[in-house]
Write a protein that binds this DNA or RNA. Structure first.
Lengths: 236, 236
DNA sequence: CTCTGTGAAGTCATTCACAGCG
DNA sequence: CGCTGTGAATGACTTCACAGAG
């Protein structure tokens, strides 16, 4: 184990590894080698070993890794053994959809508040969990009262910087931004932006300039591959 | 201009450049150098020039780029001058939120259909645009009838591979996947996955292991930076 | 002189390949 | 033996730095 700084690519992969290990555990598998893991989930075994080695020596030479131990280690590395409390700013279509999203729970996140500036929405609740919508002007107070760790920005691009500033002032250190905007942040704050515009436009690029079509199947008929996706090893 | 293959990082940035140019155009600016563009939007000027050079020589030495010309070129490169027709599979919270999302229109995308397997939902319509929800079993037919180019997967992870297979059989070549799953695809299909689980868990990692705290502001008080975000150059 | 377009240098990430532990 | 953990090799992406166009 070394004490270099860890690339976000590595932490992203740790999240993937954890998902894979959860599937293995659910299937009753007790032990796995980096090679087996790599083959089953289309990963690179050297990379798995390298990623893990940043944090410790979790394997047994000649054997591999104990599934449950490794799960526990990665869960701990990613901080998923502590519950995170989430506030969502923007109670529009996207914000409320996220408030109802179950994926949060699996990773030990709990959505505890929404915020909006629309008088009509403030005071209402969202979803079965009855999550309350607060006035966005009261972020600081609610962040404190509800002990919010993580914020989600689901407002129009033009309001995103203002909202981020408010969240940073309130002491929020981790923010997931869905607004298609490049935001300025303090260096002690972690900001991840999910930019749908960029994703869509990149897809469009691909449609406009399809890569050199393989000569083996010029008509675009269904390939073998499509008909036989490798089992449900894909259902992570 | 060379004919190498273009990295997705480059196409992502082209989308960003286009957004920046749109702002400049809206502000009435006619001409811009790579340096001016870089400084204004926190980019690297050499990278801008390199990215553009893959596709042609759009600038004038000693002057820079004509904003409107460059906009037109990038719009063309990204294929945004052709309308793309989008089908969304999964008419749950996320699917309907996306159907109502305005960001599509700006990039010349039109959502023309939703799909679900829930009897209760099939036949209903969503949003002001009255987009119809079809039976997911009829994807192939509807893709043909509605000339759908791009699909969005907004179903639970366990159903995502099945849905992708159906879409590929139906001839869809570009797919945006929101299910937290690693999917197998044919090489002639472009798949972009937006994995919220990975994003959240990476944020959690950051909270669990905050990077070496700068000694200048140990108490985490507000920094100058936070109080003075650089104008609305951020509102892309 | 300014700014583009681009080889060359530099940085960062992935993959190889093997010493050495169990 | 088989497999981990890891230096060394390769590859990918970014930034530098400058020749040459305007």
């Amino acid at each position: 184990m070394k004490s270099e700084k860890i690339s976000e690519l590595t932490t992203n992969r740790l999240s993937v590894y954890l998902r894979c290990l959860n599937k293995l555990a659910a299937a009753g598998i007790k032990t796995v080698s980096s090679r087996a893991l790599a083959e089953q989930f289309n990963l690179n075994s050297a990379q798995i070993r390298k990623d893990l080695a940043y944090f410790g020596e979790f394997g047994t030479r000649g054997v591999g890794y104990t599934v449950n131990d490794l799960r526990a280690h990665i869960t701990n590395i990613l901080g998923l053994d502590t519950e995170r409390r989430v506030g969502i700013v923007g109670a529009g279509h996207l914000g409320t959809a996220l408030a109802n999203y179950n994926g949060f729970t699996a990773s030990n996140f709990a959505v505890v508040a929404l915020f909006d500036n629309d008088r009509e929405l403030i005071g209402r609740t969202v979803g079965d969990a009855q999550i309350k919508i607060y006035d966005v002007r009261h972020v600081a107070r609610v962040v404190r009262a509800e002990r919010i760790d993580v914020a989600v920005i689901a407002v129009p691009a033009r309001a995103a910087q203002r909202v981020l500033n408010g969240l940073m002032s309130a002491g929020v250190k981790a923010v997931l931004n869905f607004a298609p905007a490049r935001l300025n942040k303090r260096p002690d704050v972690k900001l991840k932006t999910v930019d749908l515009t960029i994703s869509l436009e990149t897809l469009s690029y691909f449609l406009a300039r399809p890569p050199a079509t393989s000569t083996t199947n010029p008509r675009g008929l269904l390939s073998f591959e499509e008909l036989t996706p490798r089992e449900d090893e894909n259902e992570l």
